[in-house]
């Protein structure tokens, strides 16, 4: 089975741990890579792609030293390799301008506010993962327990209608 990965980017270690803990159940079947900066995430993602594996979902903080989350996601959006990767911005502090940029230029899929709720985050990641697996044409059956069944059902039905 191929390796599917979720990338978490958050500069504050305690917060990174807390996000990872909430998403623990995904680790039964897929990998979660925890990164403390955008640069680290970029390196890790390159390694994943080089091995022929998949980056399905990115959950990134916005306000970080050196490179902000929005800038990181904008670069990613311009990179054809990660065109399908689903992007979630998880932030406590974004100005109006940042938010506009995130939507218009980074093409983010979801915007979550800190402090987040576990169910909300898990639901978001699960939904994004479902979309990615179908978009990438992967076999979804091994992952069913992690996926958003409603989305999965709707998309499969629509696909068979065509």
């Amino acid at each position: 089975m191929e390796n599917v990965t979720i990338i978490l980017v958050e500069d504050q270690r305690e917060v990174l741990q807390a996000i990872a803990k909430d998403l623990e159940k995904f680790e039964e079947l897929i990998r979660i890579e925890e990164c403390e900066s955008a640069a680290e995430a970029e390196t890790v993602m390159k390694q994943i792609v080089d091995k022929g594996d998949y980056v399905a979902v990115i959950v990134s903080d916005h306000v970080m030293p050196n490179k902000s989350g929005v800038d990181f996601l904008i670069d990613l959006n311009n990179n054809p390799t990660f065109k399908r990767t689903r992007k979630i911005l998880l932030t406590a502090l974004a100005t109006h301008q940042d938010t506009i940029q995130a939507i218009n230029k980074a093409n983010i899929d979801l915007y979550l506010e800190k402090p987040w709720k576990k169910e909300e985050l898990v639901f978001a990641v699960s939904t994004m993962l479902t979309h990615y697996i179908l978009d990438a044409g992967l076999d979804y059956t091994p992952y069913v327990s992690l996926l958003n069944s409603e989305i999965l059902f709707t998309r499969l039905r629509n696909a068979s209608d065509v």
Binding site: L16, E34, C35
Partner: peptide, 28 residues
């Protein structure tokens, strides 16, 4: 607290995975 940064944790996990054939989750 946890004294390793995310980069170090990744390296240690990789090492454990390879050496002891642990699952990625357990290794991490």
């Amino acid at each position: 607290g946890l004294s390793f940064n995310s980069q170090q944790i990744r390296e240690r996990a990789h090492w454990l995975e390879e050496k002891y054939k642990l699952s990625p989750k357990l290794a991490k």
